[in-house]
Amino acid sequence: MANAREVKQRIKSVKNISQVTRALQAVSASKVRKAIDQLEDTRPYSVKAWQVLQHIAKQPDRSTLHPMLVKHSSVKRIIAIVISGDRGLAGAYNSNLIRTVETWSKSITVPVKYITVGKRGRDLLLRRGKDIMAEFSNLPAEPSYNDISPVGRIAVDTFLGDEVDEVYLVYTQFVNRMNHQPVVKKLLPLETDVDERVKVFNEIESLTGGYIFEPDQTSILEEIIPRFTILQVFHAVIESLASEHSARMVAMKNATDNATALADALQLEYNKARQQAITNEMLDIVGGAEAISE
């Protein structure tokens, strides 16, 4: 059995750790609230923007409308935008995301280039020998559209410059505080997939004939399509942030609980060791006294 002093030292260090994790938990709890607020405030606009893009992509003469709607005949070059966190200590948040990237990239036969947002994703992908063409890190705690737009801008520009055939977006979707799902979404070319979030809003899918465009087709599509596409990247970052903070909060809560349980167990061990030491001393005294009295 370990001696009492060693156990006492361990108890102290475990308690110190639990203080740190408790503080981190409190910080994450307030951040998660802010992130969810921001997510809920910006969600209606993003969802509507995505719906409009879907409607545009459903137009009968879609491929003549805008180059971002045109499917490239052969897909040889792919970009994936991977949105991760800048910091660790968020449980499985970052590793789940990277695992999703790995699984997805195995199904792709052509080389993939990565644009990473967040240090963790960058480091983890680098370690796996991925080809990273751009990285963004140290984003502000509550990023605005302007903070994120360069990320989407790169994707849009390379696509329009015919340097890439498809662009994917990998991020963590925030379902609720306990549940966040890494997802892979095809960003470009714009296609009509059934989006989960559209269903949530319980929209009656209306028949879309050809649009009337005002002031004219080119100028409005030129304005809407790149902007709304970039907005999707922004929204993905907001979703990911809310997920990251809540993942960290849960991870830190677990760590605090574990540390408390461990400290309790060690306290018991310490008490035992202390009692054992006293018993031993008493045995010594009794033994000594008997030896003298004989």
Binding site: V52, H55, I56, T208, G209, G210, Y211, I212, F213, E214, P215, I220, E223, I224
Partner: peptide
């Protein structure tokens, strides 16, 4: 206030996209 002047949209309007 559409970019080409004021518009009134009523039910059953044709699909339209405008600034």
């Amino acid at each position: 206030p559409g970019s080409l002047g004021e518009m009134g949209i009523m039910p059953g309007h044709a699909p339209l996209l405008s600034t």
